[in-house]
């Protein structure tokens, strides 16, 4: 097939062309660092959301624990306000 011979000849001559010299090593490392930071970003959001949800539960748990360990505290605590 003559078209293929033409293509091959063209490819052979084109292969002698000088390819631009470049050094991408620094850019590659920078891109990898950037991607690494990006991959942590969703995790940071999950952590922030978890903390926001956990704080009210922690406060509620603290009061529940107080009530269980000192059952009469709920009775005396309002009285203290009255005495003041």
């Amino acid at each position: 097939m003559k078209e293929l011979e033409f293509l091959k000849k063209l490819g052979t001559v084109a292969g002698r062309e000088e390819v631009p010299q470049l050094d991408v090593s620094r850019r590659v490392l920078a891109a990898l660092r950037e991607r690494e930071q990006d991959s942590f970003r969703p995790l940071a959001w999950v952590a922030a959301f978890s903390s926001a949800v956990a704080i009210p539960f922690a406060i509620a748990a603290f009061y529940a624990l107080e009530t269980l360990t000192h059952p009469l505290l709920n009775v005396f605590y309002p009285l203290r306000w009255v005495m003041l």
Binding site: K2, E5, L7, K9, L10, T12, V13, A14, R16, E17
Partner: peptide, 20 residues
């Protein structure tokens, strides 16, 4: 012409190949 390909400059040939 096809018979002129080998006499072409490499850049010219590469450019032609690319466009083809």
């Amino acid at each position: 012409p096809a018979d002129r390909v080998e006499a072409m400059e490499p850049t010219e040939a590469a450019d032609l190949l690319h466009r083809l």
